[in-house]
């Protein structure tokens, strides 16, 4: 009997249509035309690649050939899937080298007919772009560090310390997860205004660190600490550490991976924040990047696409580069967090 684990040759579309709503579907590939039923590759990571011992019928060479075939198909599938993800970004970056009329063509050109870097010069000439870049960078950095600290403390306490009212307070905090920013923008503006903090960076720092945007971070940290074996803290307790000591010297260092997840979530959120800066900030020197992008317009309010796209490219590429370098650690970090409900 051929084991189900054995891939028939040419399996290429593993479970493309596997939707969460059809748990009973035994043949997941069947709904995709042309797809062979080859479920085993879904999980065929290297850890499963060693052929199990009970496989006498297939030669090693045949197996390898099949596996190579399957891998090739998977890579082709990944390439195909990449197109809708990569093309817009590619278009954005290359369009910054095009003149306006070429950008607006209904069928986009893949490569500029006559590339020019002129728009990049204008990015810096028209606005204090470097200053705005710095604003975004430092705000995002402060928010990220602040959120990590605040969320780690709160997450730890909610997970580990059995103080009365912990549940109620946790639910109170969680409510922040449920409030769309459009709902609270007007009252928040009134609060910020009554505190005299319009056109300062305070609302962009304090509200994200303490308010609704931090809730997800608190949630992630709490889940992590819940999953962290208590025994790890016992040793510290034996050494005479108090609660703070345990938190600082044991729990926090152990939570590096969860903190990494929190950091990237938070940084991205702050980096891309749009509505709030527009509402709170009014002078160009205080602007953040997403807001600054909207300022590259011609005399009649029409967008200068090439300059906007050049500026957008400048804001996206560094973040992508960081992700490219840090992603392995990031994913592995997340894998070890208690991101499990």
């Amino acid at each position: 009997m051929k084991s189900e684990v054995m891939p028939p040759a040419g399996g290429n579309h593993p479970g493309a249509e596997r939707s969460g709503g059809r748990p009973g579907a035994e043949r997941p590939g069947a709904t995709a035309p042309g797809a062979q039923n080859e479920p085993s590759m879904i999980l065929g990571g290297p850890r499963q690649d060693r052929p199990p011992p009970d496989r006498p019928h297939v030669s090693r060479a045949g197996l390898r050939a099949r596996r190579r075939w399957a891998r090739g198909s998977l890579i082709a599938l990944l390439l195909l899937l990449s197109i809708p993800f990569v093309f817009p970004t590619w278009w954005m970056a290359t369009s910054s080298l095009k003149p306006m009329s070429e950008i607006l063509q209904a069928v986009p050109t893949v490569w500029p007919q006559d590339p020019t870097f002129e728009a990049y010069g204008q990015v810096f000439a028209l606005q204090p772009f470097a200053q705005q870049y710095w604003n975004s960078l430092y705000i995002a950095a402060v928010v990220t560090i602040g959120t990590m600290l605040v969320a780690a403390m709160a997450g730890y306490a909610f997970a580990r310390i059995r103080f009365p009212g912990a549940n109620a307070l946790f639910v109170l905090v969680l409510a922040g997860l449920l409030v769309p920013s459009e709902v609270t923008i007007v009252p928040l503006f009134r609060i910020v205004n009554s505190l005299g903090l319009i056109d300062t960076h305070w609302p962009l720092i304090v509200i994200p660190v303490l308010g609704a945007p931090a809730v997800l971070a608190v949630f992630i940290m709490r889940q992590f600490f819940l999953a962290l074996p208590v025994e790890l803290e016992e040793a510290g307790r034996m050494d005479g550490l108090g609660r703070w000591g345990i938190f600082w010297r044991i729990a926090l260092p152990l939570s590096r991976s969860a903190l990494g997840a929190v950091a990237i979530f938070t940084f991205l959120k702050s980096w891309n924040l749009y509505l709030e800066p527009i509402v709170y900030l009014s002078s160009k020197d205080n602007f953040t990047l997403p807001q600054a992008l909207t300022q590259y317009v011609d005399a009649y309010g029409g967008p200068m696409w090439n300059v906007q796209l050049a500026a957008t490219t400048l804001t996206v590429l560094p973040v992508l580069a960081v992700f490219l370098v840090a992603q392995r650690q990031f994913v592995q970090g997340l894998a070890h967090t208690g991101l499990k409900g």
């Binding site: 969320a151 403390m153 306490a157 103080f163 912990a166 303490l210 609704a212 931090a214 938190f247």
Partner: peptide
Amino acid sequence: VGYTMVAPVVLGALAFVVLP
């Protein structure tokens, strides 16, 4: 210690979520 640790987010939730 627990109350101190959750104080920032709880106060934040009151000021920037519950109040609005």
